[in-house]
C-alpha cells in the first residue's frame, strides 16, 4: 500500500495536459468547425456579391471600405471584420464561453473532471484560456479568409491608408493581422463575461444566449446619445475603434484604451467566476 501511495503522490506534473486536452476537445467538435466555416463565409459572400454585381459600389455606400474592394482585394478582410464585429463574432464567442462550465455540468462530465481532480481554479483557467484561443482563431479566420478571397477575386496592391500614406502589400497584411489581434482582445472581455455566466447555470444554451444578448444590449446602449456618460464603461465601447491602426505612423491610443477596458472586464468577471465556481455545489 505504501509503495502505491508513493507512486500516486509522486511529482504532480505542471498540468498543461488539461489545456491540451481542452483545446483538442474544442477543436475536435463539429460545432467549432461549423462556426469557423460560417465566419469564413462572411468575407467570401461579400467578395462574391461585389464581384458578381454589374455596378461597383459607389463611394460611401454599404459597409465601410466596401467601395475600395474593387481596387484592392485586401479591403475585403477589413469589410468582413467590420461586418462581423457587432453580431457574428460575439455570437460564436458566446457559444464557446457560455458552454465552458455549463456544458460540462450539462453532460455530467464536470463531476468527473473535479473528482479526477482537475482542481476548480485550474479548470476555470483552462476553460478561459481555451475560450481566448477560440477568440483569436475566430478573428484570424475572418481576416485570413478575407485576404485569401480578396487575392483570388480582385487585384491586390499597395494600400492607401486613412492618413493618405501608402504602405506595401506585406505591411498591409501585418496591419490586418494586428487588427485581428485587436478584435481578439475585444472578444476576450466578452469571453470572461460568458465564463462567469456559464458558472451560474447547468443549461449551456441559457448561458450562451445570455452572453450574446449582453453583447447586443451593450452595443445598443452604446448607440444611445442620452447615455454618453455610460459609454466609456461598456465593454463594446472600443470594439470598432481599430481605425487608428490604419494610420501612418500607427496610433496605439485606441489599442491601449481597449486593452485597459478589456483587462478590467477580464479581471472583474474572472474573479466573479472564481468566486462563484470555487464554492459551488456540483450536483449535476
Amino acid at each position: 500500500m505504501s509503495s502505491k501511495q508513493q507512486a500516486v503522490r509522486a511529482r504532480p506534473s505542471a498540468g498543461w495536459a488539461l489545456l491540451g486536452s481542452e483545446l483538442s476537445v474544442l477543436f475536435r467538435r463539429w460545432r467549432t468547425w461549423a462556426m469557423l466555416a460560417a465566419l469564413a463565409a462572411i468575407p467570401v459572400l461579400i467578395a462574391l456579391a461585389v464581384r458578381l454585381s454589374s455596378r461597383d459600389p459607389g463611394p460611401g455606400q454599404g459597409p465601410p471600405f466596401l467601395d475600395r474592394v474593387t481596387q484592392n482585394g485586401l479591403f475585403i478582410a477589413l469589410t468582413a471584420t467590420v461586418v462581423s464585429i457587432p453580431l457574428f463574432l460575439p455570437l460564436t464567442i458566446s457559444v464557446v464561453a457560455g458552454d465552458a462550465i455549463a456544458g460540462e455540468a450539462n453532460l455530467g462530465t464536470l463531476r468527473y473532471l473535479l473528482a479526477a481532480p482537475a482542481g476548480r481554479i485550474r479548470l476555470l483557467a483552462v476553460k478561459y484560456a481555451a475560450a481566448v484561443a477560440f477568440c483569436i482563431t475566430a478573428a484570424l479566420t475572418v481576416v485570413t479568409a478575407g485576404m485569401l478571397i480578396g487575392v483570388a477575386l480582385f487585384p491586390v496592391g499597395p494600400v492607401t491608408l486613412l492618413s493618405g500614406d501608402t504602405i506595401s502589400v506585406g505591411e498591409s497584411v501585418l496591419r490586418l493581422l494586428l487588427i485581428a489581434g485587436y478584435v481578439s482582445l475585444s472578444l476576450a472581455g466578452l469571453a470572461a463575461i460568458g465564463l462567469f455566466i456559464s458558472t451560474l447555470t447547468e443549461v449551456p444554451v441559457g448561458a450562451m444566449a445570455a452572453t450574446a444578448v449582453l453583447a447586443v444590449v451593450a452595443q445598443i446602449l452604446g448607440a444611445l446619445p442620452q447615455l454618453d456618460w455610460l459609454h466609456p464603461w461598456l465593454f463594446t465601447h472600443h470594439w470598432v475603434g481599430f481605425a487608428d491602426l490604419l494610420r501612418q505612423p500607427i496610433s496605439w491610443d485606441a489599442f491601449a484604451a481597449n486593452a485597459l477596458l478589456q483587462g478590467g472586464y477580464i479581471a472583474l468577471f474572472c474573479t466573479l467566476a472564481y468566486g462563484r465556481f470555487a464554492s459551488k455545489d456540483v450536483l449535476s
Partner: peptide, 22 residues
C-alpha cells in the same frame, strides 16, 4: 457515468486522465 458523446471511449478516458496532475 457521464462522457462526451462526440469523443470515442478511449479519448474520453484520455481527457479525464489528463485532468489528474498525478
Amino acid at each position: 457515468p457521464a462522457f462526451y458523446p462526440f469523443l470515442s471511449g478511449a479519448a474520453n478516458l484520455h481527457r479525464l486522465d489528463a485532468a489528474d496532475r498525478h
